[in-house]
Design a protein around this nucleic acid. Structure first.
Lengths: 135, 135
DNA sequence: ATAAGTGTACTGTTTGATATAGTACACATA
DNA sequence: TATGTGTACTATATCAAACAGTACACTTAT
C-alpha cells in the first residue's frame, strides 16, 4: 500500500508518508476526491503515533496534494488549473537539484552523454506509459 | 568555492561538503591529484569543527572520490577504469530515486511528457557542454 | 633528531529534529 | 447526543549532528 513505511529508514517516517502519498497520487493510485484514512486510523494501521501522521498530512496539504476538512477528514485534492507561482518555483528548484545529483552520479559511473539522455528519456516514457495503463 | 557551506541549511554540513566536492570533481573544478585543504585548515577556513570535515573526507574516500595518505594529506582520486560493482549499484539506485522524484514533481507542475523529456535532455546537454568548456 | 603538519580516534557535551504518549478542544455528521 | 474528524497542546525519550578538547601514529621538511 501507498502508506507502507520503514521505521528503520534514515528518512523520517512523516517524510516517507509524504513521498509515498505524492507518488501514489501522481501514478493515479490515489484519485482526486479519494478519502485518506483518518490520522488515528492510519496510526493504528501502521503502528505509528497519530501526531506523526498529522505532521505528514499537514505537509501534504501545504503542498496542495490533499485537502483537510475539519470534522470530515482528508481527501486527495483536485489538481488546480493554475498553480500558485511559489510552488512552481519550489518544484522547479527541486528538479534542478535532483538533475544535478543525477549528472554527478552519472559522471562517476562513466556514463556517456548520449547514454544518459537515452536512459532518462526511456525512464520518462516508461513512467508515463505506466500511468496511462493505470499502473 | 567548492567548500562553501550553509550552516543553517537542513542538510548536514558534512553532507554538503560531500555533495560540493563530488560536484566540483565532476565539473572539473577539482582535478585528479589536486590536494584538498587539510582538515584543520578547512575547519579554520569555514569555521567548522575539524571532526566534521574529517567525517566528510571519510565519506568521500568511501565513495572513491578522494584518497587519503596518512601524514601527507587528501587528494582527488584518479578515476578508476573499472569501478567496484556495488558502487555502481549504489549510484544506479540513487539515479532511479532521483528520477522518480523528478517525475512526481513534474506531474504536479502539469508538465507534458515531451516537455519533460526536452527539459532533461537540454539540461544534460548543457551540463556536458559546460564541462567541456572548462565550466 | 626535531618540529610541524597530516589523518584519525577517542571522550565528553550540546543542540535540534523526530517520534512517542497522553490529553484536550472545536468542528461535522449520523 | 455520541462518535469521529483534524488540530493543538505538554512532556518525555531518542538519535544524529556538531562542537570542544585531547591524543596518537604517521610523513615531511628543517
Amino acid at each position: 500500500m501507498w502508506y507502507d513505511v520503514d521505521p528503520r529508514s534514515s528518512v523520517p517516517i512523516y517524510q516517507q508518508l509524504v513521498q509515498n502519498a505524492k507518488g501514489a497520487v501522481a501514478k493515479g493510485v490515489l484519485m482526486p476526491g479519494d478519502k485518506l484514512p483518518s490520522v488515528r486510523e492510519l496510526a493504528a494501521l501502521i503502528t505509528i503515533n497519530h501526531n506523526t501522521i498529522a505532521k505528514a498530512y499537514q505537509e501534504l496539504e501545504r503542498e496542495g496534494v490533499i485537502e483537510t476538512l475539519r470534522g470530515r477528514g482528508t481527501f486527495v485534492a483536485a489538481r488546480p488549473e493554475s498553480e500558485a507561482i511559489w510552488k512552481g518555483e519550489e518544484r522547479r528548484k527541486m528538479i534542478r537539484e535532483m538533475m544535478n545529483q543525477i549528472l554527478v552520479e552519472a559522471f562517476y559511473m562513466k556514463m556517456e552523454e548520449d547514454e544518459l539522455v537515452e536512459l532518462l528519456e526511456e525512464t520518462v516514457r516508461d513512467w508515463y506509459q505506466e500511468r496511462r495503463d493505470g499502473k
